[in-house]
């Protein structure tokens, strides 16, 4: 559905100046070329949900803007459903829906209803289709509650639901979401995710999402593309990403009241004593199993409680970003 090959985008920016009369000297500042996206390549199949992750300024939004046809790349090719976005702009528009968390695509001063009707007319959506789709969207997004409120008076959560309805009204095959859940409350986030998952399931909509919210990723994405300083550093499924960046798992043991904990600690597991009296055993799942670690602990001491910590994507991303900063 989406094919990206050796995609590059360069921007020319003036060199920042500082010090006395910086504003005036800025006028003669030399320009330099910044490569925002560098040789990015991937392919997305129909019906996939792909999380496109990276730190701020890594090139996520620039990539999305090239895929949607807003920005023309410096070099490289993109085809979405066989079309080059910036060259076949009009035809391509029917194939895609786009939601930017930062700014609305709707008409700011007018009620949501007018925006949706205008989109219906611009995309030449039939009256019957329009009614049935609004009904369908309303089931998850509850947009009918605020159809007559101007966009500027909507809460952020309502606005995002309205934007999502606007983006999906013409039933595009591909949906791009750029930071859709920023600033939303838990309920609104869940409604958005449910809607996206359902559109994907029922209509096989291909979804590409950039987000900093790890719950979005954990709940929606089977596949992750990770970008850092304009380059793809990982492309694969979520669990291998965790394996790669968080190679250990952890068993946390709460010893019994008078247990002698001195001998807890299996082969291939690092023992850490926590401040609250619990003991963490870190192990590499390739070399030993959780069962072996637990069995060893249980055979040497009295155990009151234990649990296994699954690696969190958040930790993975934090790790990768920390690496990027260095």
């Amino acid at each position: 559905m989406i094919e990206v090959v050796e995609l590059v985008k360069e921007f020319r920016k003036p060199q920042p100046t500082t010090g006395r009369l910086a504003g005036v000297r800025q006028l003669w500042a030399p320009r330099r070329t910044v490569r925002a996206v560098d040789q990015v390549g991937f392919a997305v199949e129909r019906g996939e949900i792909v999380g496109y992750l990276g730190a701020n300024g890594a090139g996520k939004s620039t990539t999305i803007k090239m895929l949607t046809g807003i920005v023309v790349p410096t070099s490289g090719t993109v085809t979405v459903n066989g079309l080059v976005p910036w060259a076949n702009r009009k035809k391509h528009a029917y194939n895609i829906g786009v939601v930017f968390g930062q700014k609305t695509q709707l008409w700011f001063d007018l009620p949501l209803r007018v925006s949706l009707e205008t989109i219906r007319d611009l995309y030449r959506i039939g009256a019957a289709d329009y009614v049935s789709r609004i009904d369908e969207f309303d089931e998850v997004l509850q947009i009918k509650d605020f159809m007559d409120t101007p966009i500027r008076s909507l809460s952020l959560g309502q606005r995002m639901r309205g934007d999502l309805a606007g983006a999906m009204l013409h039933r595009p095959q591909v949906l791009y979401l750029d930071e859709p859940t920023v600033g939303l409350d838990v309920v609104a986030k869940q409604a958005l995710r449910d809607f996206i998952a359902e559109q994907n399931r029922v209509h096989s909509t291909t979804v590409m999402i950039t987000t900093h919210d790890m719950d979005d990723i954990e709940q929606l994405c089977r596949r992750i593309v990770l970008i850092d300083r304009g380059r793809v550093v990982y492309d694969g499924d979520l669990s291998s990403l965790k394996r790669r960046y968080l190679p250990f798992r952890e068993v946390v043991i709460t010893p019994g009241a008078n247990a002698d904990t001195a001998y807890i600690g299996a082969k291939h597991a690092d023992r850490l004593e926590n401040a609250d009296g619990t003991i963490s055993l870190r192990f590499d799942p390739e070399r030993t199993s959780a069962a072996a670690v637990i069995a060893q602990a249980a055979s040497t001491a009295d155990i009151a409680d234990l649990h296994v910590n699954e690696p969190k994507l958040e930790d993975v991303v934090r790790l990768i970003y920390a690496e990027a900063e260095r």
Partner: peptide
């Protein structure tokens, strides 16, 4: 302001 984004996304 980036309002041009949405002009490029619509089929007209």
């Amino acid at each position: 302001t980036g309002e041009f984004d949405r002009y490029l996304l619509r089929p007209t």
